[in-house]
Amino acid sequence: MKTLALVSILAFAGTPLAAQQGVDAQLAGRVAPDVAAAVRTLADSAMRAGLPSDPLVQKAIEGAAKGVPAPQIIAALETVLGRLDQAAAAIRAAGVAQPDAETVVAGAFAASAGMPASAVTALARVQTAKTPAAALLRIAGTLAAIGVPSPQAVSLVVAAARSGGDVTAVLDLPARVESAVARGVTPVQAAEGLARAAAHGGLPQSPGGGRGNSGSHRP
């Protein structure tokens, strides 16, 4: 069994000065000077608020690559920072005193998929050692991106998390919903059906052959 080796997608530098140098290095040659200046200012605000700054860097690079005009990029960056701040607040509202960066970014992702702050709080509240908040938020956001309305997405993720299994029950959800949609039901119908199944003692054997015994891949 291979050991799962996981890496943080958010590379934090050791000191703010180093972090700023890291930001400058990533932006060099990729974004216009005014965008770079905006990133530095907003990244500084983020760090002062205890929020991760890497999502700002990545969004700026994306905008520049897509040829988006600088004012629009800067507006998008402010939106990103606002989402990070709101996500952190929503997670703290769930009783998590010090949300870690990964969870905050996952919460901001859920928001970008259209989920309201109350959904982020509800999901953070449900988290357990086996089903961490970052997973719940990412999967709920993915379900929303598939077309499951936010309330049903939250209910489904909560039901799967509480079904007693480990996080795989949650990670499988987007694939299950998509399989059901491919068979002809709407996303909300698929989500509601799966939530009922989870509440009544567990989700059925997951679809998608070729995966092998679903029980044997647990790390």
């Binding site: 934090f12 000065l17 972090a19 002062r48 205890g50």
Partner: peptide, 19 residues
């Protein structure tokens, strides 16, 4: 050493040892 504010920010950014 660094200003208190810088150390706090570094710790929040993940450099726990600087606490």
């Amino acid at each position: 050493g660094a200003l208190d504010g810088d150390v706090v920010r570094a710790v929040l950014a993940g450099d726990v040892d600087r606490y």
